[in-house]
Design a protein around this nucleic acid. Structure first.
Lengths: 210, 210
DNA sequence: CCATCACCCGACCGATCGGTCGGTCGGTTG
DNA sequence: CAACCGACCGACCGATCGGTCGGGTGATGG
């Protein structure tokens, strides 16, 4: 475990990410973040202008991490089915590796900005990268529909289904099959989830009558 | 619009439901709820013991409303496929009719209880009814799998997919197809969503090669 | 006519919120 | 040596948090 004495700024971002993921923007105080990072509260404001700015910096990191993994998939030159399968795999992998991602992303996707933080440059960039990522997925689906490989669907609806089925799955308790409560992010569980989604999108749930 | 001068208690519950759905437990103050209900803050504490108690009373109403609509479906004596279809229809209808339901439910499903509210009797009842509802859906799926009508799946995973695909859809902005931003809860949009889900679970997304 | 009651309110409480201020410390620079 | 610097901190600010308290009001009923 090489701990290269990571800078205070990164340390703050890390603990803030964990806390915001768990309890949301309003549920976490700056003092709590500071003590969790081993600093005084005032020191946070040396590195970040305000609480919203810190929040969106955290969120931006998360969204960008995800974007960087998804972008090559949607930009690749394979067939629509393989692209969809790879998208599911990469998405599930990314969400499983960092448990904070799903929760922060889910909050970002459905939560309203109580106070108008939208003018923050960090918030604007977040929204931009996120929109870009989602639009990439839409394009992937649209291509498949145009090529006749996918059924004619509302791609917007399908994206939401895909997001809901993945992000929500990892954001919620991940109850697992029989092993209630256990964290259960084993490689086996992850590949099981991928298989479920592959099958659902390939064949649906209902067994073919013939 | 018959306004039967609904009791202050119900008025409080209504406005609190709307506010909690929008900004979550931590994001809403008692004073805001009070003024929105046309009362003084102290009056809230005449009807409800504490803020968590009010929150879980709100949540309980929502969950029970949903439970009451879903229970007859899972208890009915039709085939698994029809049951699934009806489940989707009823679920989508319920979420579309009251936009607060999806958001409150989503929060309840994935948010952690920051402070241990779990000892509240209202919270316990919430969790009970919710667990009962989810278990009913699991039973529905399990029956279908046992009867060979559904593919062999992890029913827990499938429930989460179903929840994610419906609850998340209505909790998020519901961007709609091309009409960005518009509320768009028209009957047409709702039945479109049902159709998408029916098709997904019946056939998947990929067009059959033969 | 008076007691009771549900209902409602303004004033207030201690705690905590995000954020500021003045200042200390250790490490470059010249 | 002095001058400067980023990192950090304790003390403090006004505002707001959930919650309490005592008292007011209007309808009810003996």
């Amino acid at each position: 475990m090489a701990l290269p004495t990571l800078s205070s700024r990164d340390k703050i971002l890390d603990v803030a990410e964990a806390l915001f993921a768990r309890r949301g923007f309003e549920g976490v105080g700056m003092r709590e973040i500071a003590t969790a990072a081993g600093l005084g509260k005032s020191s946070l404001f040396h590195h970040f202008r305000s609480k919203p700015q810190l929040y969106y910096e955290v969120l931006g990191r998360v969204i960008e991490r995800l974007h960087d993994r998804l972008a090559p998939v949607v930009a690749s030159h394979s067939g629509s089915i393989e692209k969809l399968d790879r998208l599911i795999d990469v998405l599930v992998d990314a969400l499983a590796e960092q448990p904070t991602t799903a929760r922060l992303l889910l909050r970002a996707l459905f939560e309203e900005d109580a106070t108008a933080h939208d003018q923050l440059p960090e918030a604007i960039k977040c929204e931009q990268v996120l929109a870009d990522t989602l639009e990439g997925i839409q394009r992937l689906l649209r291509e498949g529909v145009d090529a006749g490989v996918f059924r004619s669907v509302s791609v917007a609806h399908t994206v939401q289904t895909l997001i809901g089925a993945t992000v929500y799955h990892f954001a919620s308790g991940e109850l697992g099959d029989g092993l209630l409560g256990r964290p259960l992010l084993s490689a086996e569980a992850v590949s099981r989830r991928k298989e479920e989604l592959h099958n659902l999108f390939h064949h649906g749930l209902v067994v073919r009558p013939a």
